[in-house]
């Protein structure tokens, strides 16, 4: 047996934790080892020192102070209960605080959203623009352009026949009062219109198409379509104060 093991057995013997066999083995070891006996006696004397040391006497007022402290804390908790919801468990407090914070956050978000988006009023131009972008994902079947070069208006108009719609985009520079008419006929209805880079303009829609009154530089896109997928000719015309300045009809597959 190693020295470390004998040390452990000595300590365990002191604590009354050895088995009878372990105690017997230790006694045999101590009988044969003077150093072992010295160490064991030393441990025993130290243990007796603890017994001799005894307890330290606490102040006589200790119990009363403890009871007073408990009573004070109870009274304080009772006073605070209404303000700090002490009747709730800590977990419930956290849950309620989180729910309240979330509700406040949602309300603030709704208020800010309405304020920034102008309340319930819809931005028609943005709405049309979003629709046009969605329909742009369709494949182009045919695309033709019309060059506009007349006094008071210069630019280009492009007609795209797509899977689900007909796109007409235009980029023009025009004098004030010029009106560009896009007329695909009664078969197609206007689905969307977007003029992302345009000065002041006015859009007028009719059964035959649309008319855009503008002045200055303007880029716009108009989307027409119907459930049946009709692809009729599209008439593009430009009119000024003196009457029609330009007119051209685009037809699918003509070129």
């Amino acid at each position: 047996m190693t020295e470390k093991r004998w040390q452990e057995l000595m300590n365990r013997e002191l604590d009354g934790a050895n088995s009878p066999e372990e105690s017997a083995a230790l006694r045999s070891h101590l009988a044969a080892s003077e150093e072992g006996r010295r160490q064991f006696d030393e441990l025993g004397r130290m243990a007796r020192m603890f017994t001799e040391a005894g307890d330290v006497k606490p102040p006589a007022s200790m119990e009363a102070k403890i009871i007073d402290a408990i009573a004070s804390r109870e009274a304080l908790a009772g006073r605070d209960r209404g303000f700090f919801l002490d009747f709730l468990s800590p977990r419930r407090k956290i849950a309620y605080a989180f729910a309240t914070g979330l509700a406040v956050g949602i309300i603030i978000f709704i208020i800010l959203y309405q304020a920034l988006s102008g309340g319930n009023q819809l931005d028609v131009r943005d709405l049309y623009g979003a629709l046009a972008e969605r329909e742009q994902s369709g494949a182009v079947i045919d695309a033709q352009s019309a060059a506009i070069a007349v006094p008071g208006c210069i630019g280009t108009a492009i007609v795209q026949y797509r899977d689900q719609a007909v796109f007409v985009s235009a980029s023009v520079e025009a004098d004030d009062g010029v009106e560009i008419e896009i007329a695909p006929g009664a078969e197609l209805a206007l689905r969307s219109f977007r003029a992302p880079a345009c000065g002041p303009y006015a859009l007028r829609a009719s059964g035959a198409g649309i008319a855009v009154s503008l002045g200055g530089r303007c880029e716009f896109v108009a989307v027409f379509g119907d459930a049946g997928g009709a692809r009729p000719p599209v008439r593009i015309s430009v009119a000024g104060a003196g009457g029609t300045l330009f007119e051209q009809t685009i037809e699918l597959g003509r070129n």
């Binding site: 307890d55 330290v56 006497k57 606490p58 200790m62 119990e63 403890i66 009871i67 408990i70 009573a71 109870e74």
Partner: peptide, 21 residues
């Protein structure tokens, strides 16, 4: 609280001694 007072009376000295040592 009185009941707990009995607990304090019974174990107060032992707890004090643990802390003190």
């Amino acid at each position: 609280r009185e009941t707990f007072g009995a607990v304090v009376h019974r174990y107060g000295k032992a707890i004090f001694n643990v802390a003190y040592r």
